[in-house]
Design a protein around this nucleic acid. Structure first.
Length: 493
RNA sequence: GGCGCCUUCGUCUAACGGUUAGGACUCCAGGUUUUCAACCUGGCAAUAAGGGUUCGACUCCCUUAGGCGCUACCA
């Protein structure tokens, strides 16, 4: 039997980082087993629908290289089209199917019409809570006779369809990650299946779609565990074969609550916008709740396809640690070749306003800057702070900063002037770090490294910390270097 | 409140019932460096508690505690 997995988000605006992990796990299982991975959009709640969210979701899958075997995809014009035979993959396109299914359930006495209003339900709930009872639907409409039901429907009374949960008995199932789990039917609510607006709820729609799409393994977040018995009952009510369920541990805030906007970025887009690399994000989230059982921590998508296994999925929730994310990202940044890193950094550089449209001859210079920044970046959006000295001179540093440990103001002026006199004789064409070093080596041999390199570095960068001065000088070029040295000397005078 | 799930360093995690409980991030120290970063070396740091079972328990069983999730005509 071919393995078919799916990811089924609702298009409410952005993709949650935890959602991406769920999708990744499902994708990995499909790929590892020569199965198929399906995307389905669960947009049955019209009040929460956000235009463009589905397109956005599809784009993100593309960015992360998680190709879809079936599901909505974008054509060249950016319009949503269906790929695969078991769709439609957007639930709002097939509400008739859910309605028909609900009616079938009623005919088989597995569901019933309910005419209770939201106000009544609210009142009922409040009452139960006051009495210390578990808040549940009181099943007032569960045993209405057919005639009355017909009459009320014909009279135009609004209704919902509810699942007729058995009054007793237990459901037991074997969760892929948690093992045997058991629930008592008598504690379950008569879940609404069809809302009064005629749209299905999640519970009805998932079961129907997972069945029609022949999903074999349902891997979803742990928050769905309590509704699984309802879903199982629905499968049985329809007479359908059960898929395998697996409930993934939650992603947590540092305070161990469910990962939320209040504490961290939750949208995948946010991480991309900050300059976390695609490889970093994949590698990081896959390890939040899974590990290969070895010391290996760096994984490519290809390696993950090899190594991933459901058995090694963790049961406990995992705290999302940004510090470790940063470390991983700097690791991947260091591994990039300059060519690729430059093109990744360019959009961030433009964002800072340091460059606009760059010309062909500027590109080599940008590459040098990127090469010099590579080891210093945790995130690509830090490029502004790291590289601004190459574009704009800092004028606001204090003159004291120029003076190396044991040196004095006057000795520093002298050293800077000596440096300047050496550099002034070098042609701009030859202004590279080897040449500069050749010129300066006698001087440093005489007075030492600190008294020379320190003030030079500060003069060029205007910062307390920076890359080595000759590296900066090479990128800046003769004219700017001499200018900045002059400015430093004036500052001291 | 009810139901369910979970519990190894601060965090992510490893450990056929037999290890000085391992690795990574963070943090600290040292080295390297003109500075910072990077890099290298080293260090701090954990089996929630209590009972069993066993020659032997992180590992199996029970109890307690704590955490989290769900408890909608949202998903």
């Amino acid at each position: 039997m071919q393995i078919r997995t799916r990811f089924a988000p609702s298009p409410t605006g952005y993709l949650h980082i935890g959602g991406l992990r769920t999708a990744l796990y499902n994708w990995l299982i499909a790929r590892k087993n020569n199965g198929l991975f399906i995307l389905r959009i669960e947009d049955t709640d019209r009040t929460r629908f956000v235009p463009g969210a589905t397109e956005n979701l599809i784009k993100i899958f593309k960015i992360f290289g998680l190709e879809l075997d079936e599901g909505p995809i974008l054509n060249e014009k950016g319009e949503i089209i269906e790929k695969g035979d078991s769709g439609p993959y957007i639930q709002s396109r097939k509400i008739d199917i859910y309605r028909a299914a609900a009616e079938q359930l009623i005919k088989n006495d597995r569901a019933y019409y309910c005419f209770c209003s939201s106000e009544e339900l609210e009142l009922n709930r409040a009452e139960q809570i006051k009495n210390g009872e578990p808040p549940r639907y009181n099943r007032r409409c569960r045993d209405l006779n057919n005639k009355e039901v017909q009459k009320r429907i014909e009279a135009g009374e609004p209704y919902v369809v509810r699942l007729k949960i058995p009054l007793q008995g237990k459901v037991k199932f074997n969760d892929l990650v948690r093992g045997e789990v058991e629930f008592d039917y008598s504690l379950l609510d008569d879940q609404v299946l069809l809302k009064s607006d005629g749209w299905p709820t999640y519970h009805l729609a998932v079961v129907i779609d997972d069945h029609h799409m022949k999903i074999t393994h349902i891997l979803r977040a742990e928050e769905w565990l309590p509704s699984t018995p309802k879903h199982i009952y629905l499968y049985q009510a329809f007479g359908w074969e059960l898929p395998q369920f697996g409930h993934l541990p939650l992603l947590l805030n540092p305070d161990h609550s469910k990962l939320s906007k209040r504490h961290a970025d939750v949208a995948v887009e946010d991480y991309l916008a900050k300059g976390y690399l695609v490889e970093t994000i994949i590698n990081f989230i896959v390890l939040l709740g899974w590990n290969p059982g070895t010391d290996q921590e760096i994984f490519s998508l290809q390696e993950l396809i090899q190594e991933f296994s459901i058995e090694k999925i963790q049961k406990a929730g995992a705290v999302f640690d940004v510090k470790k994310l940063d470390w991983l990202n700097s690791y991947y940044i260091k591994k990039k070749n300059i060519e690729e890193l430059t093109s990744l950094i360019l959009p961030f550089l433009k964002q800072t306003g340091l460059i606009d449209d760059l010309t062909e001859e500027e590109l080599p210079k940008i590459r040098k800057i990127v090469a010099l920044s590579q080891d210093r970046l945790k995130r690509l959006n830090e490029i502004g702070e790291v590289a601004s000295m190459f574009f704009n001179p800092r004028l606001d540093y204090s003159s004291d900063l120029l003076i190396w440990k044991s040196e004095t103001k006057s000795s520093t002026i002298k050293n800077l002037e000596d440096i300047k006199n050496l550099f002034i004789n070098i042609d701009n064409r030859d202004f590279d770090k080897q040449r500069l070093n050749e010129k300066i080596v006698d001087l440093t041999a005489k007075v030492g490294n600190g008294p020379i390199f320190w003030p030079l570095r500060v003069a060029l960068s205007g910062e307390k910390n920076s890359p080595p001065p000759l590296e900066i000088a090479e990128i800046l070029g003769r004219k700017k270097v001499l200018l900045r040295i002059d400015r430093a000397i004036n500052k001291l005078k």
